[in-house]
């Protein structure tokens, strides 16, 4: 029942097994699509975060808004099982419970305090897609500003209720959740993907467009 394996065979096979695991891990890592996720508030920088997170799912259990979701197998080996926020489904209400309970420090403890949250939390930054935003296209909406936890600090409204995001934005995603346009005209770009901000902000519809149904040019 207990067969004896010679030393040489064991060393040989264990070398094969070990290298198969290591190289398999690297290959899986390479093959995965590089996607940047919006992390819960207080997350350490991304390269450290995926290492420090032990995938215990406690942050997801404690989240009172069920905003924290977990990456499934499509996220590749470095991301799989880590927490992320999909703001269109549920935005973060900045209760800071997840950081307080995280056992490994992957999510740092931040006090549930208005000023400290603005200073320390930086999940990402919201960006307005001017091509499809109602307020930039002859209609008036302003829903995003109403849902913002820091109105007029992180998100200002200009004439015709046009939203303008400032650098104070923490990236909680409540604006993206509340946007009435489909697809969403305001979205949170997670940190590490700042180059995408210009892409959304630079394209704008001509403001007075004769093709707009039921509305003469210049109202």
């Amino acid at each position: 029942m207990f067969e004896k394996i010679t030393r040489r065979l064991f060393l040989k096979s264990s070398l094969i097994l070990g290298s198969a695991i290591v190289f398999g891990g690297f290959l899986w890592n390479k093959a995965a699509k590089a996607k940047v996720y919006l992390r819960p508030p207080g997350a350490v920088p991304e390269s450290k975060f995926t290492g420090q997170c032990i995938r215990c799912f406690i942050c997801g259990e404690v989240c009172p808004n069920k905003a924290i979701k977990f990456v499934d197998i499509e996220g590749g080996i470095t991301n799989i099982g880590t927490p992320y926020i999909s703001p269109r489904e549920q935005g973060c209400i900045l209760c800071m419970k997840c950081g307080q309970i995280c056992p490994t420090g992957a999510l740092q403890k931040i006090e549930d305090d208005f000023k400290k949250i603005i200073d320390k939390v930086k999940m990402g930054r919201a960006v307005v897609d001017k091509t499809i935003c109602y307020s930039y296209n002859n209609r008036i909406c302003g829903f995003c500003q109403q849902s913002c936890p820091f109105p007029d600090i992180a998100l200002k409204l200009e004439v015709w209720a046009r939203p303008v995001v400032t650098d104070k934005c923490v990236g909680c995603g409540l604006c993206e959740k509340s946007c009435i346009q489909v697809p969403q005209a305001i979205r949170v770009i997670p940190r590490g993907e700042e180059h995408k901000i210009a892409f959304y902000e630079n394209y704008q519809m001509p403001i007075y467009d004769e093709h707009l149904p039921g509305m003469p040019p210049g109202h």
Binding site: I21, G25, F26, N29, S47, I54, R55, I77, T78, G81
Partner: peptide
């Protein structure tokens, strides 16, 4: 593997 930041164990 974890030396290179790849956590395989939890899965």
């Amino acid at each position: 593997l974890s030396l290179f930041g790849i956590q395989l164990l939890p899965y």
